[in-house]
Design a protein around this nucleic acid. Structure first.
Lengths: 146, 146
DNA sequence: TAATATTGTATCGTGTGCGATATAAATGCA
DNA sequence: TGCATTTATATCGCACACGATACAATATTA
């Protein structure tokens, strides 16, 4: 087996494993808030700006409606968001935060700090910025091929 | 919002997005083979060495039996592997490749090359090794906290 | 303007991931 | 030996992801 072939497996499997570990680490922090990681992502989008369309959220999270719609339905059932049909355009669905959803932002204040701690551990990661940059390159390349 | 807090979100969401994009890129390559990406990972473990225990596979893929067992059951249904109960230790389940499973290795020869192409795109391989290294550090840190 | 195409969401089915629990086989220990 | 404990795997339930499809509302066009 060629060197490059191993390399491929290494990088892909590492991304797969790292992603799952990140989600697991978030679970410990988010469970007290009653959120999953994908739900937390939606909340972050809405905390940044309230009242967004389903399509805004799908674009922001690079997901499709067949993932986001059920996600939002569960969050609506939990009383975190409300979905209302668009007035100007009846096809659209507007997603807005409830009181409970807004209040949750305060409780989530320490989550990012904890996650940085989890990622960095005791030591520094020298190439933190370069890691971000490399991931962006990777993501850009993959998007082009899809 | 502090700089670090944004940074956290960036890196975690990037890992999440990159992982999904990798899976999507694999889907195009693996669908002709009748494999999903997790199934392909299992096949790679078995192509490297046949006749392994469920626990060997779970450790190798950093997954638990509640994920791997149904995965193997689907693969057995597809005629890719056979699961046999351990002789020495009746608790164990030994997973071995069928003829069909072994033959699939040839058809999958070009998959890693294609994926490297997808990951690298036109650009160079600069920072590829450091990306692997940084991901390993990240994975190591996350494992420690879980 | 009526017919057609497009767009924005939603629904359905399948395959993971994973916490929680179950079960049978092996082990340990009184 | 008998029984509690541990171990290896399996089962169950829920929440994603995503391809495929459906559907209603808007836009287009003949």
């Amino acid at each position: 087996m060629h060197e490059q072939l191993k390399l491929d497996n290494q990088i892909c499997f590492r991304l797969y494993a790292a992603s799952r570990l990140v989600t697991q680490a978030y679970r410990l922090l988010l469970e007290p808030l009653g959120l999953t990681y994908p739900q937390y992502l939606v909340m972050m989008v809405l905390w940044e700006r309230d009242n967004q369309l389903v399509s805004d959220i799908t674009h922001r999270l690079m997901l499709d409606t067949n993932t986001v719609t059920p996600l939002l339905q569960r969050m609506e059932r939990e009383g975190l968001v409300v979905r209302t049909r668009g007035i100007a355009d009846g096809r659209q669905t507007l997603v807005s935060l409830t009181h409970k959803g807004k209040r949750l932002e305060d409780k989530a204040q320490n989550v990012p700090t904890c996650m940085v701690q989890n990622l960095l551990g005791d030591g520094d990661i020298g190439g933190y910025a370069s890691l971000v940059e490399n991931l962006d390159t990777l993501i850009g390349n993959l998007k082009k091929t899809l």
